[in-house]
Simulated scan of single mutants.
Amino acid sequence: MASATSFYDFKPLDKRGQTVPLADYKGKVVLVVNTASKCGFTPQYEGLEKLYKEIKEKHGDDFQILGFPCNQFGGQEPGSDDEVQSFCQLNYGVTFPIMGKTDVNGDQASPLFEWLKKEKPGLMGMKRVKWNFEKFLVGKDGAVKGRWASTTKPESLAKPILDELAA
C-alpha cells in the first residue's frame, strides 16, 4: 500500500476477518486506537465509550472510534477476536467497532498503522507505536491530524475532535 495517500485507501479486517473499506468513513472524523484487554490502560475503554457517546449525541455519524486490538505489547491481548469483543462489551459496554487483532509494529504490521505512523511520527520522529492505547485522529479529509500517547486520557481529546468536526 505504498501508494496510499489517505485513510480511505485502506481495508483492515473486522472481528470476523472481513475487509472493512475505510472509504465508508469518508467525510467523518475518526479516532483510531490500538487497544488491549489486559493492560494498565485498559480502563480507557470506559473513557473512549463516554467520549464516543457524548460526541455522537451531538454530531451523529460524523464521528467514529475504531479500536484495533493488539497483542504486541507484553502479550496484553491474548484472547481470540470473539473473546476481545465479549470483554469490551461486558466490562465496558463498548458500542464503537472493535476490529480484528492487528499488529501495529514489525514485519507483519498492518498497512494502515504503517501509514498512520509515517504520517504522524511520535516523539522525536519515532515511527513506531510505543504501547497500547496510542491514539490517532483522522480528519474529514482522510489526513492524520493528531497523535497521542497511551497516557493521554480519552476525555482530553474532546476538544481536538470537536475542532475537526467544526473544520
Rank of each mutant, 00 (worst) to 15 (best):
A36G: 01
A36I: 13
A36L: 11
S37P: 06
S37T: 12
S37G: 06
C39K: 12
C39Q: 08
G40F: 09
G40R: 12
G40P: 07
G40S: 09
F41E: 00
F41S: 06
T42C: 12
T42N: 14
Y45S: 04
Y45I: 02
Y45D: 01
Y45K: 05
E46C: 13
E46F: 14
E46K: 15
G47L: 11
G47R: 13
G47T: 03
G47K: 13
L48W: 15
L48N: 12
K50M: 11
L51Y: 15
Y52S: 08
Y52A: 10
Y52H: 14
Y52Q: 07
Y52V: 11
Y52C: 10
K53E: 10
K53M: 08
K53V: 08
K53W: 04
E54Y: 04
E54R: 15
E54I: 10
I55G: 09
I55C: 05
K56Y: 10
K56C: 12
K56S: 12
E57L: 13
E57Q: 14
K58L: 00
H59P: 06
H59M: 10
G60D: 04
D61R: 14
D61L: 13
D62H: 09
D62L: 11
D62C: 03
F63P: 10
F63G: 11
F63L: 11
F63W: 09
F63H: 12
I65G: 01
L66P: 00
L66Q: 02
L66R: 08
G67P: 04
G67V: 02
G67W: 07
G67E: 00
F68H: 01
F68K: 04
F68N: 03
P69Q: 01
P69S: 06
P69L: 07
P69G: 05
P69A: 09
C70T: 10
C70K: 06
C70S: 09
N71C: 02
Q72K: 06
F73V: 00
G75P: 03
G75I: 02
G75M: 02
G75F: 07
Q76N: 03
Q76Y: 03
E77H: 06
G79C: 04
G79M: 07
S80Q: 06
S80V: 02
S80H: 02
